[in-house]
Computed example of a mutant assay.
Amino acid sequence: MLMSNTDRPARLHYMANGFRVLTPGNHVTCAVSGAAIDLDDLRYWSVARQEAYADASFALEAETKA
């Protein structure tokens, strides 16, 4: 039986110019809002904190708090 990545969170390693998939899935969770982010829509993350963000405002909020 083939496993589907539908509705399964991915585990990623965030790098400066992209990310590497450690565990397959179709989304990650925003570190600030808790919203699911499809991997195709993921544009904002922190390399230092290894966190994903749903949009630029959440990335700024996390950076401000750090």
Rank of each mutant, 00 (worst) to 15 (best):
Arg11Cys: 00
His13Asn: 12
Ala16Val: 06
Arg20Asn: 14
Tyr53Met: 07
Tyr14Gln: 02
Ala35Tyr: 13
Ala31Thr: 09
Ala52Thr: 00
Ala59Leu: 12
Arg20Glu: 15
Ala31Val: 07
Met1Lys: 09
Ser46His: 10
Met15Pro: 00
Pro9Ala: 11
Asn26Thr: 13
Lys65Gln: 13
Val47Arg: 09
Ala31Asp: 15
Pro24Gly: 03
Cys30Phe: 06
Ala10Met: 09
Leu12Arg: 11
Met15Glu: 14
Asp40Gly: 12
Ala66Glu: 04
Asn5Thr: 10
His13Val: 01
Phe58Tyr: 03
Ala35Val: 02
Tyr44Cys: 03
Ala16Glu: 13
Arg11Lys: 03
Glu61Phe: 01
Leu42Ala: 10
Tyr44Phe: 15
Arg20Trp: 10
Glu63Asp: 12
Met1Trp: 04
Ala48Phe: 01
Gly25Lys: 01
Lys65Tyr: 05
Glu63Met: 04
Arg20Leu: 12
Glu61Asp: 14
Trp45Phe: 06
Asp38Tyr: 07
Ile37Met: 04
Cys30Thr: 07
Leu2Phe: 07
Ser4Arg: 04
Asp38Gly: 04
Asn17Phe: 13
Phe19Asp: 00
Glu51Trp: 05
Asp55Ala: 01
Glu61Thr: 05
His27Lys: 06
Asp55Glu: 05
Ala59Ser: 08
Glu61Gly: 01
Ala16Ile: 03
Val32Trp: 07
Asp38Gln: 15
Ala16His: 12
Ala54Leu: 06
Asn26His: 11
Leu22Glu: 15
Ser57Ala: 05
Lys65Arg: 07
Ala16Arg: 09
Gly34Val: 04
Ser46Arg: 10
Thr23Met: 10
Ala52Trp: 02
Ile37Tyr: 07
Met15Thr: 11
Ala31Gly: 10
Gly25Leu: 13
Ser4His: 14
Ile37Ala: 03
Val47Lys: 02
Cys30Lys: 09
Asp41Met: 13
Asp40Cys: 05
Ala48Val: 12
Leu42Pro: 10
Val21Asp: 10
Val47Thr: 13
Ala35Asp: 14
Lys65Val: 03
Ala36Glu: 15
Leu22His: 08
Glu51Ile: 00
Arg11Phe: 04
Gly34Phe: 08
Ala56Ser: 11
Gly25Tyr: 03
Leu12Ala: 08
Ala10Trp: 04
Ser33Gly: 14
Glu61Tyr: 03
Asp55Gln: 05
Leu2Ser: 15
Arg11Gly: 00
